[in-house]
Design a protein around this nucleic acid. Structure first.
Lengths: 182, 182
DNA sequence: ACCTGTCTACCTACTGATCGGTAGGTTGCC
DNA sequence: GGCAACCTACCGATCAGTAGGTAGACAGGT
């Protein structure tokens, strides 16, 4: 992948995670890279194409990190702790919320394909968590707990960013994991 | 409050909750009411003023509903059930997320005063929940659980809206309350 | 060694639509 | 006459997107 494409995806991802899809413009991205906005259209014909590429790359990166981080966990609580640490790292490394947390909030105003990609990201998160909850739990209870965990992570990032304190995220997650030790 | 102002606040709130602050324009609002965009400036000099008025009215309405709904609760779990039902009602009535959930996500790209008003909304939510948790819990644990509960509610609205199913919200909240019965 | 064609990675220059915002009417009620 | 509730008619900035040009690298043929 060319350097310019990578830098474009980086700038777009940062902008979307901080301010939202509609607050990111081709002109701003171009200016940040030192090129012209028409050159951005050379790589991404429409804004939707850029958005989709950002979500695709983000999805792959997050799931790769989740797979790696949870690889050697043995108990469900170890798995959850590792899972959560990937999100904690994402928040602290970027000082912004999850890309899909932002796009999920905006999804009614997004191109359909983009909204669908975000929904798929959420669903895959829920499925992965549910698959690693104790086998002794009924399937319905696992689905509920998995949804609860994803919702808490996403909401904790939003509230922590608004209150400008990563501790808010840690506080929410500490109680989440304390309650999950079933 | 004049009818036009109420209708403007309604239209702006709906637009922001569905698509975000930057996706709402004076022109669209005016068109929806059948007036001209310059007339919107007659009521709200700047977009920021409109945004602040929307958040103010929303904050008052939500806290009034929370106060009313939780008025006759006796146990912490009753309080939480009533608290959560206000958010459930907000989601189902509007088919969109919490106004402050959207603005909190976008807060890095918002006028400062607006971001501050949203942060205050979150903080007040946390304080109210914490104040109604069992007195037997240490203050720190109450703060953590309260943050956890607000984060779950906000995240559950986002994920449910993205996955286009209110059941997602119910699933997350059912597990949240099941774990909260301490 | 020199021309020729093709390709990538941009560029200039522009379009029509839309943005928030302003100046200065007009209309109808009290 | 004065005021509230609009209006027309703009402004300059910004938006996504398009048309068509160019400079440089590389390849193949002669």
């Amino acid at each position: 992948m060319s350097d310019t494409i990578t830098r474009l995806l980086d700038a777009a991802e940062t902008g979307i995670r901080l301010r939202g899809y509609h607050a990111v413009s081709f002109r701003d991205l171009a200016e940040e890279l030192g090129i012209k906005s028409s050159s951005v259209h050379y790589y991404f014909r429409q804004k939707e194409d850029l958005g989709l590429a950002v979500v695709e790359r983000y999805t792959e990166r997050v799931f790769a990190a989740l797979t790696a981080e949870t690889a050697n966990t043995e108990t469900p609580i170890d798995y959850l702790t590792a899972f959560v640490s990937v999100y904690r790292h994402a928040l602290k490394g970027s000082d912004s919320i999850c890309l899909c947390g932002m796009l999920g909030a905006e999804s009614a105003g997004l191109p359909e394909k983009l909204a669908a990609a975000v929904a798929a990201f959420f669903q895959e998160n829920i499925d992965r968590i549910a698959a690693n909850l104790p086998r002794t739990m009924p399937a319905k209870a696992r689905r509920e707990k998995a949804t609860h965990i994803l919702a808490t992570l996403q909401g904790a990032m939003t509230v922590a960013t608004s209150l400008k304190s990563h501790k808010v995220f840690d506080n929410a997650v500490r109680d989440l994991l304390a309650g999950a030790e079933v």
